[in-house]
């Protein structure tokens, strides 16, 4: 028996595989750093005040911005929040409070499965649901598509957050003679609230980055628009259109718009992280 050499071999395999795993970890950094670096380096040059405030200009003309697209994104994400946040958070509270029965389990399963439905499919749904009845593309249709995308993910996130609220707090409130529903709202949900806000911010960030469901719901618009019944520009669709155009000038605009989008998404993510931290500190 050559116990020693087999042990050495096993040791080598052990170290080797650990190294491979670490290498894979490093490998994941390459695309991340590449994307971030290129968006920043290629996009920063085009950043100016007018980029945020002006309408796009035709090819060849200097200047111009994505002001209308930025506004359109804010507008549609806002609409999506109006529908999606209450429904998503509400469904999450339902899952946490009543989700242990058969109905609750099937709702949870459906939410999990729906959160994997491709966003382009949701675009078709919003098209059939809003665009066809209205007769034309609109910000409402875009908002509805984004809302449908928000609901399942937000529901599951909210459920987890409400479930980690200690049962002792609910008991303490009930023992004070507080009704169930008041206890649920003012103690349990209140305690989970900062986490829920975090989840909402992440849902907003995700919605702001969606492109596919907007292509044939909100379509696009060359001008300022605040009428929810009209086609509306969005930052993501603008990036797409600029990127697939044949003009270098527009490519540069695509990078700058991408930088703006990353800044928006990044700020929302950072805000959510800051909130998470303050919540942990408060909860001992």
């Amino acid at each position: 028996m050559n116990l020693h050499s087999s042990f050495t071999y096993r040791k080598v395999v052990d170290r080797g595989m650990a190294l491979v795993c670490a290498l894979f970890f490093a490998l994941a950094f390459i695309p991340l750093l590449s994307v971030l670096w290129l968006v920043i380096s290629k996009g920063a040059a085009g950043l100016s005040w007018s980029f945020f405030t002006q309408l796009p200009k035709p090819v060849g003309e200097v200047g111009g911005g994505v002001g209308n697209a930025l506004l359109g994104t804010l507008f549609m994400v806002g609409l999506a929040c109006l529908i999606g946040l209450p429904l998503g958070v509400g469904a999450g509270v339902f899952l946490a409070e009543k989700g242990d029965g058969t109905v609750g389990r099937s709702v949870r399963f459906m939410a999990e499965v729906l959160s994997g439905v491709p966003s382009i499919v949701v675009g078709i749904v919003a098209y059939a649901l809003v665009v066809i009845p209205m007769g034309h593309f609109s910000a409402i249709a875009g908002g509805v598509a984004l809302a449908i995308l928000m609901i399942p993910t937000l529901a599951r996130a909210t459920e987890e957050l409400v479930r980690v609220v200690p049962a002792s707090l609910r008991e303490a409130s009930l023992a004070l003679g507080v009704a169930n529903w008041r206890t649920s709202i003012r103690v349990v949900i209140r305690t989970a609230m900062s986490g829920i806000v975090t989840a909402c911010l992440l849902a907003v960030a995700r919605a702001a980055g969606e492109t596919a469901p907007l292509l044939f719901t909100a379509l696009n618009n060359q001008y300022w628009n605040t009428d929810p019944r009209q086609p509306t520009a969005s930052l993501t669709v603008a990036i797409f259109n600029y990127a697939i155009s044949p003009y270098d000038d527009w490519h540069a605009k695509a990078w700058t718009a991408a930088l703006v989008l990353l800044i928006v998404v990044g700020l929302l993510n950072i805000a959510s992280r800051v909130l998470t931290r303050s919540r942990l500190k408060g909860a001992r």
Binding site: P31, S34, V35, V39, A243, H251, L262, V265, G266
Partner: peptide, 20 residues
């Protein structure tokens, strides 16, 4: 870093893919 990868919008990946 993995969470950051997930947070990047897909249109930005498309832009990166197309030009890089």
């Amino acid at each position: 870093p993995v969470e950051l990868l997930a947070a990047i919008p897909s249109v930005v990946y498309g832009l990166w893919g197309l030009f890089i």
